[in-house]
Nucleic acid binder design. Sequence first.
DNA 1: GTGGTCTAGACCACT
DNA 2: GTGGTCTAGACCACG
Lengths: 137, 137, 137, 137
Amino acid sequence: MIIQLDMQSEVPIYIQLMNQIIEGIAASRLKPGEALPSVRHLAADIGVNLHTVNKAYTLLKQEGYIQIHRQKGVVVQPDGLPGLTPEFMAKQLEQLRPIIAESILRGMNLSGLLSQVQKLYEQISPSPPQSGKEPTP
Amino acid sequence: MIIQLDMQSEVPIYIQLMNQIIEGIAASRLKPGEALPSVRHLAADIGVNLHTVNKAYTLLKQEGYIQIHRQKGVVVQPDGLPGLTPEFMAKQLEQLRPIIAESILRGMNLSGLLSQVQKLYEQISPSPPQSGKEPTP
Amino acid sequence: MIIQLDMQSEVPIYIQLMNQIIEGIAASRLKPGEALPSVRHLAADIGVNLHTVNKAYTLLKQEGYIQIHRQKGVVVQPDGLPGLTPEFMAKQLEQLRPIIAESILRGMNLSGLLSQVQKLYEQISPSPPQSGKEPTP
Amino acid sequence: MIIQLDMQSEVPIYIQLMNQIIEGIAASRLKPGEALPSVRHLAADIGVNLHTVNKAYTLLKQEGYIQIHRQKGVVVQPDGLPGLTPEFMAKQLEQLRPIIAESILRGMNLSGLLSQVQKLYEQISPSPPQSGKEPTP
DNA sequence: GTGGTCTAGACCACT
DNA sequence: GTGGTCTAGACCACG
């Protein structure tokens, strides 16, 4: 798992961390049940404060994306990732709204915007994650 | 111009203000050259401090969306709104990326995502600005 | 006398006005003794407030660049323009200093800077003003 | 880093602050990567309000002259200072123009002006930065 | 301890 | 009356 942080970004580091891990799961680079580095290790690896990693993990756990076990450490949610809950859909709309508004203001047409979204979608998820159970012979 | 602010939101007020104004321009509710309320009036109207409004206006001016005339007031950019600059496209991608990643993680498929974006686009975007009167039979 | 004002500039209008008139005199487009438009006329011509023109004229008079007569109107200083007083030299240095500092910071070398200054000098003063008396045959 | 402010000056304090810091960088008294005082410390040191310092820092950051690290502090831009962009050259010309015009009006000749500029340049500019040790015989 | 945000209130320059 | 600047003081997010 490679983490790329921009220490000069205005985006808080713990948010960047969350985003990177979320993207890792979305891209199936991190698979359900797979272990994540301990808070201590990850903090040392990427050179940030323990609290920062801890905050990211805690929030990811709250969203149901990971599990934190006292002894076993941190693993990607093995019991089914959260789906398209109404809360998530609402949050998504609120996040998309200002981005789309500004795109319209700048004169972007719908097809241009859709193609940008599609490009990003395919870039992040190169191999469509096998939803449901894998065929286990 | 109706401004809806959520004082409980974690999104800073001045950002909410910017977003509302941007959306107003995108939707053609605010037209180029149209006057915006003075810093003081708007601040009084929406019940926030003058400096908060001032910050939003200043940033909108920096982005080229409005003009602040000395001692005359604030108007929506009449000299052509900024277009799809490379900087904007880059910013847009960086903003979209985590949203799309999380949508993928949640199991949303491409067509579902695209339809959400399209729905928002059409909701915000004005019907193609009918200059002049509509033909009323 | 053509006046070019930028109403969106952060430079106050009365300062822009002063600069334009100073440049006119420097370029000999306005000659000593020549009449300037009345406050009223100029204000109407360029579409600004009376007070604004008045302020510019008053300050130009204080610097000794023009004379304001109650009835005769406004004329470019006919009794010898102010020279290189110590006060002016000091002001000039204070104005140049931050510009030059920023140029150095940006990596501009001395010759590049000098050539910029020379270019501007020659552009403003195309025909060197005949200092002293003109040869009157 | 010594900051000299003129509280009586018509030049806003935050501009004076910016100028002093820019000059410090230009003179290599402040080197890329070097830390600047925190907003609060500097404000206390020079006896102005925290917001005034903050404004200066924010603008310097926007120009690319410093970096503001979240919760770490402020440092002189370590990733290469901005160069001679077209925007900067245009701004420089606009700033120089009225100064040069007034100098011409006052009867200053080209060589006199150039020597003033050169004097300032050499006064601000550091002796070419001897990287490493000087040869001490 | 750091910068980011917000409030409250004031004076000034500009038009 | 407008925005620009400055002060004073507060709370919060971040690390």
